[in-house]
């Protein structure tokens, strides 16, 4: 009995020492949870969540300061992913806060006065231009965050929905009409 106790105490001491040592030896730098949350966010950097970008929002979620349903570009899909990652309940978007259709910004090049204000607003450097030169948007890099629309003094930036074409088309989820079960007329007669 006593010896069994000693053995158990011995084992727990050894394991405790190993754990304590590895906690120091293999200390993880930075906050891995923030990285994981950031990896799930869509990186649109639009600030619609109320934070100045995806990373700050990820930090706020990790600290428990922000809800998981604040990122419209991520869609419901994104909330599901966050809920799964954090082990919390799914939470729908607030009233009127849902995602909008995917779009890219478009600059009316005849109206642009080359003020560079939009250029400074774009979080992903998707606008090319220089002072007093016409600006234009590199559509393939634009994340559709709409941050450039507001600063434009001549209102020449508009958001254009991305139309569905063959390259972006997806096979739909199979849906089938449920056929009502009809009574077999012959059977009905017989009975």
């Amino acid at each position: 009995m006593i010896s069994a106790l000693w053995v158990m105490i011995g084992i727990s001491l050894v394991l405790g020492a190993v754990l304590g040592y590895s906690a120091i030896r293999f200390k993880v730098e930075g906050n891995p949870l923030v990285e994981k949350i950031d990896a799930v966010l869509p990186q649109t950097q639009c600030g619609q969540c109320g934070y100045p970008g995806c990373k700050p929002y990820a930090e706020a979620i990790a600290k428990g300061e922000a809800d998981i349903n604040l990122c419209p570009p991520g869609g419901e899909e994104g909330i599901h992913k966050l809920a799964e990652l954090l082990g919390v309940e799914f939470k729908p978007f607030g009233e009127g806060k849902g995602p909008r259709a995917k779009a890219v910004a478009f600059i009316d090049e005849n109206t642009c006065i080359g003020c560079t204000l939009c250029l400074q607003a774009c979080p992903v450097d998707a606008i090319v231009g220089a002072a007093k030169q016409m600006h234009t948007i590199v559509a393939s890099e634009c994340t559709g965050c709409e941050l450039c629309v507001e600063p434009c003094p001549v209102d020449c930036i508009s958001m254009q929905a991305i139309p569905e074409d063959i390259s972006t088309w997806k096979w739909p989820y199979p849906v089938f009409a449920i056929a009502p079960v009809r009574n077999n007329p012959q059977k009905a007669e017989a009975s």
Binding site: P42, C54, K170, P174
Partner: peptide, 25 residues
Amino acid sequence: FRFAKSEIWQREHEQQAAEIARERH
């Protein structure tokens, strides 16, 4: 199966786009 394949492709595409956006940002 086609539905699942095209969903997965789209997701991979979005993931890549997000990755590029993150890098650019």
